[in-house]
Write a protein that binds this DNA or RNA. Structure first.
Length: 108
DNA sequence: TCAGTGACTGACC
DNA sequence: GGGTCAGCCACTG
């Protein structure tokens, strides 16, 4: 528990990711002020695992790889969620990632 | 307090 | 072009 300060900021940003768009851990970390804290963003996602309001499936690594897929019940749920939003996923990787990429630093 | 860990990233080889 | 290494920050035991 402790202070949800950093986590809360991550949640706020992730919640603002538009439907059919995706973002990266690094982009979010950078928006929060520390581009070095990409891993912490991932950690925040892990903590948000219990929070259904957090569209964690829209957050992937910088190349559009679904690295967090394994944390989704160990199934292809993450892929299905993305595909339901019109995002094509092939081999745990987002097709045309640049087109769907949403940068909070620019869009927000 | 210290050491280990991780849903990352950039640099190197 | 792809595999490895080393920093990075926050959390846990």
């Amino acid at each position: 528990m402790s202070n949800n300060d950093f986590f809360e900021r991550v949640y706020i940003v992730v919640k603002k990711i538009p439907f059919g768009r995706v973002s990266t851990y690094g982009a979010i970390a950078k928006y929060l002020g520390s581009n070095k804290s990409a891993r912490v963003v991932g950690w925040a996602m892990n903590a948000s695992h219990l929070n259904k309001d957090i569209p964690a499936h829209r957050v992937v690594n910088r190349i559009g790889l679904l690295t967090g897929k394994k944390h989704f019940f160990g199934t292809n749920l993450m892929k299905q969620l993305l595909e339901s939003e019109g995002i094509l996923v092939e081999k745990d990787m987002i097709i045309d990632f640049d087109r769907y990429f949403w940068d909070p630093s620019k869009e927000l």
